[in-house]
Design a protein around this nucleic acid. Structure first.
Length: 251
DNA sequence: AAAGCGATCAACCGCAAGCCG
DNA sequence: CCGGCTTGCGGTTGATCGCTT
């Protein structure tokens, strides 16, 4: 089987993302969702590979991402899960709400690998760590498990919305329930980097207080959006411009 | 002051799995 | 079943930062 390149390499930008690129990607995904990562940069007006956009969104721009400031509990969980799961970073990340596999992987290699190496196999047995993890009472454990579950569900919903060819503004009701924590979790990101979000006003508030439009915010009129959406200074093209009403009825 | 060096982390790359026609 | 496409994952790279000399 001949593998098709993930993208046409010619003319595509690589390296660090600029705030402007972040803004474009954020604008596009919050408006239309990630209906197709490969096509997305084209419509979003980005000179980037779709893979690069996906990575940027999942590891950096996605709401409710925690950055830095690992708690002792989180580190213990990572070490514990790594003992049982190995380098399955995505599986480990699924148990840590707000953490991405990439960040966990980095954190492991920079801090935890050394630390876990110092712990003798006996003292760091699953039982010991499980006891630490479970905390002082059972409620703590249940809370952690519930949070873990909801985070996994949240992630699943995001991914499912992006993996299907469903050009709707995604439904992120479950995430919006914890939206108020988002700014606190983003405290390591410079204000300057996300200054554009201050101006990203949605009908019900700004990006962080209303990061995701409710389903009904996606009005049929959006389907009639022009090829280049005037709301975004001509930078963002609506994918729906190419969808016939026949296809739309399928959604 | 600046060169050297290690640590950190964002981003890239290639492969595999899953889905679909 | 096969081939093509997209997405997800994990390893690796490279830019940047801060500390040391």
């Amino acid at each position: 089987m001949v593998r098709t390149p993930c993208c046409d390499k010619t003319g595509l930008k690589k390296g660090a993302w600029t705030p402007e690129e972040d803004r474009k990607l954020m604008d596009y995904i919050t408006r239309y969702g990630s209906w197709n990562w490969r096509q997305l940069p084209k419509f979003a007006g980005l000179q980037r590979c779709g893979k690069s956009c996906r990575l940027r969104w999942l590891n950096y721009l996605r709401p409710n991402i925690k950055r830095g400031n690992y708690t002792k509990d989180e580190e213990e969980i990572i070490i514990s899960l790594h003992e049982t799961l190995g380098n399955r970073w995505s599986a480990i990340a699924a148990k840590l709400p707000g953490r991405t596999d990439n960040e966990i992987k980095n954190h492991w290699h920079t801090y935890l690998k050394k630390r876990s190496g110092k712990i003798s196999p006996q003292s760091s047995s699953d039982n010991d760590l499980a006891q630490t993890y479970q905390g002082q009472d059972k409620d703590t454990e249940e809370t952690v498990l519930i949070n873990t579950q909801s985070a996994a569900n949240s992630a699943q919903i995001i991914e499912s919305s992006s993996s299907t060819l469903s050009p709707q503004a995604p439904s992120f009701d479950d995430l919006s329930a914890t939206d108020n924590t988002a700014p606190a979790n983003m405290d390591l990101i410079s204000d300057n980097d996300f200054a554009f979000m201050e101006t990203y006003e949605l009908p019900g508030g700004n990006f962080w207080t209303e990061p995701f439009m409710s389903d009904d915010y996606f009005m049929p009129s959006d389907l009639m959006a022009p090829l280049v959406d005037p709301c975004f200074d001509g930078e963002i093209a609506s994918p729906f411009s190419f969808i016939s009403m026949e296809d739309y009825n399928l959604y």
